[in-house]
């Protein structure tokens, strides 16, 4: 009798697990559908990703950046598009210091960089609404 009761309880438990698995499968289907839709939209509008990864190095934001990075951004306000060497001439710091700061700002999303021949240029990306 005791074994029978235990088996009945076990069947009930399995039934509950089954229900939860069914709802997880349904949820996963929804996630996959949303992901598919997101990838489709990203593919049609690359600017969505660009906007999500981009930060504005505006003068107020400057105040929250470390001094070493702040100096580089301030030089780029003036120079527009410049190599680490150009920035170093403006800030009177070492080229290696500027290269490191500019690359860090690129990784943080404040600057963009582009290669032209052997030179790497850093610049503040114009806002999308102003580019259009």
């Amino acid at each position: 009798m005791k074994v029978e009761l235990l088996l009945t309880k076990l069947v009930d438990e399995f039934s509950l697990v089954n229900q939860k698995l069914d709802s997880l499968i349904e949820l996963n289907k929804k996630i996959l559908k949303t992901q598919k839709e997101f990838l489709r939209r990203v593919d049609s509008d690359k600017s969505l990703v660009e906007t999500a990864l981009k930060l504005e190095p505006d003068p107020m934001t400057l105040l929250s950046l470390p001094m070493s990075l702040r100096t580089t951004v301030m030089a780029l306000y003036k120079l527009e598009k410049a190599t680490a060497e150009d920035i170093a001439k403006e800030t009177k710091r070492l080229r290696a210091v500027e290269s490191s700061a500019a690359n860090q700002l690129v990784r943080l999303g404040y600057l963009k960089k582009t290669r032209e021949g052997r030179d790497v240029y850093f610049y503040i990306d114009p806002p999308l609404e102003i580019r259009k």
Binding site: D58, M60, T61, P127
Partner: peptide, 18 residues
């Protein structure tokens, strides 16, 4: 004005000074 606009404004100020 947005923060993005302020970035453009400060760059324009530098170009005006130049």
């Amino acid at each position: 004005k947005s923060r993005a606009w302020e970035v453009t404004a400060v760059k324009k100020l530098f170009s005006l000074l130049s």
